[in-house]
Design a protein around this nucleic acid. Sequence first.
DNA 1: AGGAATTTGTGCGTATGTATA
DNA 2: CTATACATACGCACAAATTCC
Lengths: 83, 83
Amino acid sequence: MVEFDPDASIEHGAPLPPYRQLAGILAARIGRGDWQPNRSIPSELRLVQEYGVARATVRRAVAVLVDQGVLFVVPQRGTFVKP
Amino acid sequence: MVEFDPDASIEHGAPLPPYRQLAGILAARIGRGDWQPNRSIPSELRLVQEYGVARATVRRAVAVLVDQGVLFVVPQRGTFVKP
DNA sequence: AGGAATTTGTGCGTATGTATA
DNA sequence: CTATACATACGCACAAATTCC
């Protein structure tokens, strides 16, 4: 397990690819309480703007957290923090 | 011309590279009628999953068939079987 | 009622870096 | 050195459903 700084930014060229960095950062922010259970995290577009990555990268990071049971997605509504 | 089994899977390390195997398999499936003229074949991502190869490999195989006049691509819409 | 905005789903186009035969 | 393959990333466009005004 790698510790992530919830305030970190994405570093291109780092050993860990951006999508994994973002997944770690988002997980850290959830752990810190930035977004409460059953509440939505920012939209993909917002995360694209905030972290300066492509939408595909955001979606990949989200997919990782969905796979880990941290988030769940509701089409056309948003991505939420699992209770 | 080499005959291909439409139900074959990709074999790494075979004399023919994966992208050529896939091109042959897809051509065989088209010939068998899996996909009708003017209908789209599965997306690149689906083929990636189905055949266990990289997207670049799928794109190469498709490029071969486009070059042969078997398929045509409509940007942002899909890849279709030529009438 | 209705149309614009929002948000996720899905396609292809393209480029870069790494690894291997 | 070249061809092949894979992983990753960014961009752009359109669809479908929901939400907002």
